[in-house]
Write a protein that binds this DNA or RNA. Sequence first.
DNA 1: ATAATGTATGAAACTGATTTCATATACCAG
DNA 2: CTGGTATATGAAATCAGTTTCATACATTAT
Lengths: 330, 330
Amino acid sequence: MPTISDVAKLSGLSKATVSRVINKHPYIAKEKRERVEQAMKELGYVPNPSARRLRGSTTSTIGVIVPRIVNPFFSYLVNSIEQEAYKNNYQVLMFQSNENKDKELYFLNLLKNRQVDGLIMTSIENDWDVIQPYTEFGPIVLCNEYLMHSKAPIVRLDQAKGAYIGTKHLIDKGHKKIAYCTGGLFAEDGKDKDRNHGYQQALTEAGLSIQTNWIFINKHTIDDGKKVMRQMLAMDERPSAIFTGSDEIAAGVIMEAKENGVRIPEDLAVIGFDDQPIAEIIEPKLTTIRQPINELGEKSVEQLIMLMSSKDADYKQIELPVELLVRKST
Amino acid sequence: MPTISDVAKLSGLSKATVSRVINKHPYIAKEKRERVEQAMKELGYVPNPSARRLRGSTTSTIGVIVPRIVNPFFSYLVNSIEQEAYKNNYQVLMFQSNENKDKELYFLNLLKNRQVDGLIMTSIENDWDVIQPYTEFGPIVLCNEYLMHSKAPIVRLDQAKGAYIGTKHLIDKGHKKIAYCTGGLFAEDGKDKDRNHGYQQALTEAGLSIQTNWIFINKHTIDDGKKVMRQMLAMDERPSAIFTGSDEIAAGVIMEAKENGVRIPEDLAVIGFDDQPIAEIIEPKLTTIRQPINELGEKSVEQLIMLMSSKDADYKQIELPVELLVRKST
DNA sequence: ATAATGTATGAAACTGATTTCATATACCAG
DNA sequence: CTGGTATATGAAATCAGTTTCATACATTAT
């Protein structure tokens, strides 16, 4: 494993000069630069990042925290972040927090120790008060996360509008008994709160009231969706439509509905959220709220790179629009 | 940001002693260890990994290379690797190679530079001759990859058997005109070669011959599957069954078939590969070859940890069984 | 009693890079 | 011709740890 000293020796120059060539300093004679480059190539030399970081230089690496990579929403998000970062000559390290506070903190330490130059968090497990101190060591951009009162740079989606237009669409189709299904708790802070808001607003505007036993909380997966459907089947008065927090839940609902002879959308209209690939696979194809995942990733990287380059650039809080995609399930 | 010197100063001991406490060396007086621990806590001290790595100690971090994280097969694989690593107190960094040789090499350098203690490669873009030298810096386990002539530690699936039992199943159902769809090139080395082998063997045993225009190569996605279906529709003599290289391709075939009034499985039997979630979502539910993804990940981590712990432990080449899962598409 | 071994600690060398400081030459202006 | 600036290079300090070497005391074996 060749070091900078080996390169220096072979080229007959000092370590300092070699370092300058590596870092593209001005004021190096052309002839010597070439000698150094030749020596580097000859030895197959690659600078040791640990050593560089120790001395304080950047890593051209950014980190991304996701809660679970198997969730397609996040794998697509990571993917778009990766593509955009690569265009800007940044490498991406991904890390799965599994919704675990300690793991999240472990990864934040990579920032503290300059393993990565900046961080995109697509989920946040600890309180912002705990995270915030780490911004001293490098910028952190929140992507798709909702924090009400923090002044962090955030790129997010207009969740309230998503829930509003989805619910409105169901109302326009003549539905009055509209169930609602959310990832988080109903009263919680964060994006779910905004979605709840949108749902409530649409109902209120239509003069409809909320039926609490039609509210399902803490649902995420296809299996959760199936469970929700079974719960609804057991009800005396069933809702005629359901707004779900993700396409996966919606898919679960539809699958279980079909098993039980419930026709979609005649007996039950279903609307999803995300516009994941599954939305076009399930039969009937899913009406859903499209989230611009690619743009979300791109904007986050854009923000992060801006914050990394100029020490005290102004962060922004960006909100991207969502849109209703009407297919066959409503 | 406190350093080891700060801890030494506060505890009134030397850096060497502090370092020994951190690394749990024997021969430290209990009283001094406690003084050091107290000082570390007081300062909120965290060792700087760059400095540690520079001097050669381990990172308790392993790397995983995947070609594309949006492919559910790989996101589930990474997930199982992550879970198993975490149980053994290892952190996982994932990296997407995008099937790009240079990106793969970049990540291999993390091993060279001790950023990670070991590496699991779920795909391999460069030749093994290029990769092999990196094993000097830490163990590399190939997971789900096929290399015919290398002596690397490999954990993989019995692809030949998968293709064989899949094709055999179609033959048993009475099909004689069986198309075949693969990810790689038909003649290529690696896992596709094994699958081709299985397909051919099953046909040969049944006295059927290969029809080259029913062989589709280099297919991966749902869209590819749709294209394959369109190609088949345009044929004078259509196959009555198709073996596909992944559930995604199979789903694409089925979706396009339904669009065009082709009944599954009456007009066309379709068999997938992987048993991804999509296999149970698509209608009719997909007959497929189940791959034990979790076990694949677990065994890979197991192998890697073994290789990392004892310098010259014997690597193994492990082959895991696949099984046929009959649903409704055949 | 002496040698050998185990326990315990610190000073200094070392890891592989970057950066500061010192120095030297070339070029241009006054 | 002298002084100032731009160009160009190297020696040595520095980053934050780990490891070697030296040293010292306490046990145990001969």
